[in-house]
Simulated scan of single mutants.
Amino acid sequence: MYFEISEFHERLKKTKESMLRNKIEVLVVSDPANMNYLTGYDGWSFYVHQGLVVALDRDEPLWWGRGMDGNGAKLTTWLSPDSIRPYADDYVQNVFRHPMSFVADIIREHGWERKNLGVEADNYWFTGKCLRTLSEELPSMEITDATSLVNWVRVIKSPAEIRYMKQAARVCEHVMETAVNSITTGARESSAAANVYHACITGTDEFTGDHPAIFPIMPSNERTTCAHLGWDPERKYAPGDLVLLELCGVRFRYHCPLSRTVYIGTPPEKLRKVADTVLRGVEETLAFIRPGVTAEEVEARWRKAIEGSGVVKPSRLGYSIGANYVPDWGEHTLSLRPGDKTVLKPGMTIHLMPGIWEDDFGFENSEPFLVTDTGCEPFCSFPRKILTR
């Protein structure tokens, strides 16, 4: 266990308080990051249906999942044996039988079938068939969309979580340095990516790393016009190459992402002008951030900082980060963009990501940060500039 059991109890308490506010008496959790947050469960088993049942009148969540993963729940969670409910393997990928029928059995067994039920309706792991099965099996339950209910509980980090994210930041710095040093004329792009994976998982002498929720985003040249492309496995680096790096360090599933831009040779004037604008915007935006401002006010301060430069960023400026699994290290809560009136509070952890993707090239220089009592604290210490090779 990477956290004290008392911390899990506090997380569960806050989750139940949110359930009460939303008139939810029973909650089915299917997001593996939320499962991890509430119980500690950590397994690569989310390719089949699994989850938790959290009820207001039960002290512990009920873990449910594939039978062969039950021992994993015993090893990685604080739950008692009675709270671990594995299902038979004939529920797995069977068109005639669905694991949500097993969940419905659990709900009926505890007499919850007439209570209000919340489900994470809009995430990667809860399907249309999940909802249909629950609706058919539990016709007396009122089903409410509880998407991101637990995510919003997670948005303010505990001291222990912040400690792990700072450790992930040290790993991230090592990963980024490894990537930059791997980008040399004649080197294979795939070899650079392999070095990044190795650095991410091995970590530093002080802190080991972990597998990332997002693969290394490191496109070159015209591929930098796109936001989420990887390396070219058939290509070698050459003079005049532009490379974007969007990488991360991971510690016990807690992610610290960072983006930088590399150029082999002397950067062209157009790239330098965009870089100067973005870097000025990053500096002024970070200086503006403090508790009490809203997410949209942060984005507005960024736009003011780059006003008149010709640089335009139509996508959001950043998002909340923390513990997660594939396919995303974002928490799916606050976004730094117009209309998001979330008030920043101490303990929030956010990725300021002012990526610019033009028709002919891209530029990235991001900063993950912690909202403090008086302002914000960047997690990483890495040069903010075009990194040349």
Rank of each mutant, 00 (worst) to 15 (best):
R272Y: 14
P257Q: 11
L279I: 14
V180G: 09
P291N: 09
C256F: 03
S259F: 07
R251K: 07
F252Y: 09
G230T: 13
E284L: 09
T224I: 11
P257Y: 08
E234S: 03
V274F: 13
G230M: 11
A199C: 06
S190E: 14
H174N: 14
K273R: 10
I183G: 03
Y197F: 07
P233A: 13
F215R: 12
N221S: 04
T204A: 04
E269Q: 07
L244G: 12
L286C: 14
A192Q: 02
I183A: 06
C248W: 10
N221A: 00
T224W: 06
D210E: 07
V293C: 07
E284I: 04
A179N: 11
N195T: 04
H174K: 15
W231I: 15
R170W: 07
D205W: 11
F252W: 02
D210R: 04
T294R: 15
S259V: 05
P216D: 00
R253N: 01
R280I: 08
C248P: 07
T266A: 11
A287L: 03
V278I: 15
T261P: 12
R253W: 02
E284M: 06
P216K: 01
Y263F: 15
A192R: 00
A238M: 10
R260Y: 06
T277G: 06
E296M: 12
V278T: 13
L271Y: 02
P291W: 12
C172L: 00
E297I: 04
A187T: 10
G203Q: 03
T266I: 09
E222W: 07
K273V: 09
H211I: 07
M218W: 08
V282I: 13
M176F: 01
V175Q: 12
R251E: 04
N221E: 01
C256A: 12
K166T: 06
